[in-house]
């Protein structure tokens, strides 16, 4: 079971890594903004799998913070994106 969960965590890490490469290589800034959300979901999944696999419940709290901050980062992104100040 442990190795399955770890394997799953590794698999999700791989997909996240691939997605990050795709996102960060695109020129549009809106694509970049997706990165934090991606880590909120993908990173959260990885951490939850790790928490169960290593039987360390406090890791769940790290995932909780990632989830909490995923949208927060997007708010900061949108606030700072160009085009905002033209409407101020």
């Amino acid at each position: 079971m442990i190795s399955f969960l770890l394997g799953a965590a590794g698999f999700v890490l791989m997909t996240v890594a691939l997605a990050l490469v795709v996102i960060l290589r695109r020129p549009a800034e809106v694509d970049h903004m997706m990165a934090a959300q991606l880590l909120g979901t993908g990173g959260g999944a990885i951490l939850l799998l790790l928490a169960t696999a290593t039987e360390t419940p406090p890791i769940v709290d790290v995932a909780l913070l990632l989830a909490l901050f995923a949208s927060f980062a997007a708010v900061a992104f949108v606030r700072s994106a160009p085009g905002q100040e033209s409407e101020v």
Partner: peptide, 20 residues
């Protein structure tokens, strides 16, 4: 802008590293 987002992602990944 791209550098900042890279840095944020870097921080989030580091938190997984600290867990490990």
């Amino acid at each position: 802008f791209a550098a900042v987002i890279g840095f944020v992602v870097y921080g989030l990944l580091l938190s997984i590293a600290w867990v490990r």
